[in-house]
Design a protein around this nucleic acid. Structure first.
Lengths: 146, 146
DNA sequence: TTAAATTAGTTGCATAACTAACAATATGCC
DNA sequence: GGCATATTGTTAGTTATGCAACTAATTTAA
């Protein structure tokens, strides 16, 4: 039996990612309660644009760990809500560069506060060293599978 | 600044659950490659029925951490694929008891093998003690938010 | 014993995911 | 230049999630 063989119940919860689902739901709820009308998926796109505005859709795919159709639709919806604008690149007309609107720029601080607050709710009572170790394990898992 | 305040990049990856998404995708891929034609969401329902056949939809909601409409539709699809049958309860006619078909029962061993194999891929090179600690942290997160 | 409240499940609507197939543009090689 | 190949993004079809509103059956309580 391999080293890491899980017991039944544990396997389930690890695979289905109960904890990350719970965090996502809570973040969505906190956004809503504080009047931030975006989905967490939209937030994840904005998050990367706040770090670097004007990324291409392909770059957003890589950053957000989503496939191209997903980004197409997320950008569609963000555009409908007037949070980003598609600008087709002059050097390579296949590419769309995605730019934040002023509205989206104003959302950054508030939404990052909500995200941090959500994580603090999630991690209440967890030892800081344990969090670091957990982050390392999850990173290793990601690297193993990517 | 609260104890658990995350640095930017770490916050993102923890919230979006990159690792659990990666595990889910790999499990789906492994199912497909080995000819098991179910989604991971369907698997999560079957998983609980394998432990205890004949649960009600509400019990499946609690076990799988999904809401009622999700379970309604998952059971719809599982029924279409002839993997489960709805039987309305004689004691309480509001309730549907969900029963595995023979086809679904035969899927158990193979799919559990694939799930274990997937976890072993995911956890390769991770210290067993660290896994335990990580499981404990994730459980705590779940408990904090539920 | 009826009326109100609760519980179990379904349906409709919006968003999002994955796969596969596709159009348009760009690159590389002859 | 011209054709095969890559890359970027879109569209279509299926599955899934969350929320709100709904039906039907059951329980509680006036």
């Amino acid at each position: 039996m391999p080293n890491n063989q899980f017991k039944r119940g544990e396997l389930y919860s690890f695979i289905t990612g109960k904890a990350s689902t719970a965090i996502a739901r809570r973040l969505q709820k906190n956004f809503k309660q504080q009047g931030v009308e975006i989905t967490i998926e939209q937030w994840s796109v904005l998050y990367h644009l706040w770090k670097q505005d004007g990324m291409s859709q392909q770059e957003l795919c890589n950053s957000t760990f989503r496939d191209k159709p997903s980004i197409t639709r997320l950008v569609d919806n963000l555009e409908k809500q007037k949070l980003v604008k598609r600008v087709s690149s002059k050097e390579d007309r296949r590419m769309n560069m995605i730019f934040l609107t002023e509205t989206a720029k104003r959302l950054q601080d508030q939404s990052m506060d909500i995200a941090n607050q959500t994580l603090n709710e999630a991690l209440e009572g967890v030892d800081v060293g344990d969090i670091d170790l957990c982050k390392a394990v999850l990173q290793q898992v990601y690297d193993n599978l990517k």
